[in-house]
Design a protein around this nucleic acid. Structure first.
Lengths: 341, 341
DNA sequence: TTGTATGCGTTATCAA
DNA sequence: TTGATAACGCATACAA
């Protein structure tokens, strides 16, 4: 079924049908009605490829996600859902590309095959080949996360450094003197993963400022790693009374290790960090944490991208989220016995 | 950049460039090299829309996911990732459509706008408008989950009925006499959600067969609902000593309610069901459960879909997964004191 | 071994 | 108010 067939059945030219569809030219009520009737009857809709070819735009956004081989975290999946939802609200479709490193076939296909009008890039590195690639091609893009030199590009990000610093200050206020940062995986941090290195920096700065002793450890993105990590932490640094973390996925394991050690949160040990709200709320005890506004960020990323697409020559914009720390039940005063030493 | 420009720079005709690209016609080594050099230099890649228009296929699969408004479950997100990954392996892109009910704009756009070569449909209802719609249009599709009358279509599904029955038998073998099924949300079950109603049926059948007393309750897909659900269950049916569940997302809440009631799993209370493997393993205590092979199912769905696309007239195929129950640490003999009454 | 010409289904320009 | 027609970029049947 194509526009020619509709035109034939309605006894008009193809252009008239096209104009009924687009409304870009007045069409007499009578013919419009006749044409619309045929369209409705046959449930006709323009061929997306032909339209994209002619118009030079696809009405599709690309979303580059980490390769699914290693399981995506809850937060990552939240971004996917929120980007898709935001795009759907403005009648755009989303094409997924699971691309990690450089030279990814799927990534190249999407970027240089003109399959999309713009790209949302997730899980940015501080220096990221994909960003360079997109800059080369001139395809509009927005990143979730930012590179080391984000100037001149559009992005949304969470201020992991500042938020972890806030966590440290909160812990210091509660009297904790020995605190640890449970970061993301060593590989990720080594690969120049922004949230990881910025959390690290913020932690170092805040502990120094408050004269605390800080331990900075990496931890895989899963329950088992979290458990192992805290076990080791307790063994090697028994003086630590609190942890701040950006590793949501490891939290249940961390809690498990604390329990095994006979430590009750928050009585014996405080736990805080940065996490999605539902994650913090469902934690037990509920987690004192900065709640990452995942849905807002996804929507904002789409909104910024649409802006880039509509006006590529305007100055890029960005948005750094710095959600307040929601006081919940996982942090408390340093235990007397241990804070005293 | 288009094929004509490449041809011009290489001093050949457009068709020769096209044939170099496709390899469908022999081209002399000399000209091929010259052309390839230009292609490499300009980093040229054919326009996907033009190619799709000409070839009549888009090299894209559609994936219909539940609307993100209500948070997707871990298992749903697992399917998304595995479908995308499987498609990428055969150089296909995936277009996402968050479509719940009927008449969804995104769904219609994808289906009738010829944006994809085929569709994977998630979260099927026993009677599903979207299936009807796809059947009308003739677009190849595969469902994850199956309708009440799945004959004549391609699908993959988990045998929730059989698996829940197996769980009941396992509990019966352990001496439990009063068991409960914690199902998915009441809305979902009422809406004719296959896994929900099939789990219910399997539960009823197995409890009857073993002469057990079964309590069948619905529960929202989240931690809070799980907690409330088990609280109420314990209050209204104190004789229940074990639960089987298909509600992964509610499990942590269920566990929380049991703890609050002073019940230790598996000493005082047994817990089992159907869940993703990593979920079961990360649970505490690790969950005796049938492990849903999410990755396999996503890959198989793509594989079946490719078959439909390549040979629409062959008989549809399906695959019903019936993974064995992995014995872990959450089930045990009925507690003497309570099993006795 | 290579080149020419046609059409895929649209939209939009130019005529009427 | 409407119709004829020319692109959009590509693949391929047909010629040479």
């Amino acid at each position: 079924m194509n526009i020619g067939e509709i035109a034939r059945r309605a006894g008009v030219s193809r252009s008239t049908v096209s104009y009924v569809l687009s409304g870009k030219r007045p069409v007499s009520a009578a013919t419009r009605q006749r044409i619309q009737a045929v369209i409705d009857e046959l449930d006709y809709r323009p061929n997306a490829s032909a339209r994209a070819l002619k118009e030079g735009r696809t009405r599709t956004l690309g979303l580059v996600i980490p390769p699914a081989s290693r399981r995506l975290t809850d937060m990552q999946l939240g971004f996917v859902a929120s980007v898709v939802e935001a795009a759907a609200r403005v009648d755009l479709d989303v094409l997924l590309s699971p691309s990690g490193g450089d030279h990814d076939r799927s990534f190249e296909r999407i970027v240089t095959g003109r399959r999309v009008d713009g790209v949302v890039l997730m899980e940015i590195r501080l220096t990221d080949e994909r960003v360079t690639r997109l800059e080369q091609t001139g395809l509009p893009f927005v990143t979730i996360g930012r590179t080391a030199r984000p100037h001149g590009m559009s992005w949304v990000d969470v201020d992991y450094g500042g938020l972890i610093a806030s966590c440290v200050h909160h812990l210091a206020d509660l009297g904790h003197r020995h605190v640890a940062l449970v970061n993301r995986s060593a590989e990720l941090v080594a690969a120049g993963y922004g949230p990881g290195s910025r959390a690290s920096a913020g932690f170092a700065e805040a502990t120094a400022e408050r004269g605390l002793v800080g331990v900075d450890v990496c931890c895989g993105d899963d329950v088992a790693a979290g458990e192992a990590c805290v076990e080791e932490l307790l063994a090697t640094h028994p003086e630590v009374t609190a942890v701040a973390t950006v590793n949501e996925a490891a939290l249940p394991g961390m809690q498990r290790a604390l329990e095994s050690a006979g430590l009750v949160v928050p009585r014996d040990f405080s736990l805080t960090g940065v996490a999605a709200r539902h994650w913090a709320e469902n934690f037990r005890p509920s987690l004192t944490a900065a709640d990452v506004p995942i849905v807002d960020m996804g929507a904002e990323a789409v909104s910024l991208l649409l802006e880039r697409i509509a006006a590529p020559d305007t100055a890029p914009r960005h948005r750094l989220y710095r959600p307040p720390i929601s006081l919940r039940a996982s942090t408390g005063p340093v235990p007397a016995a241990r804070g005293a030493r």
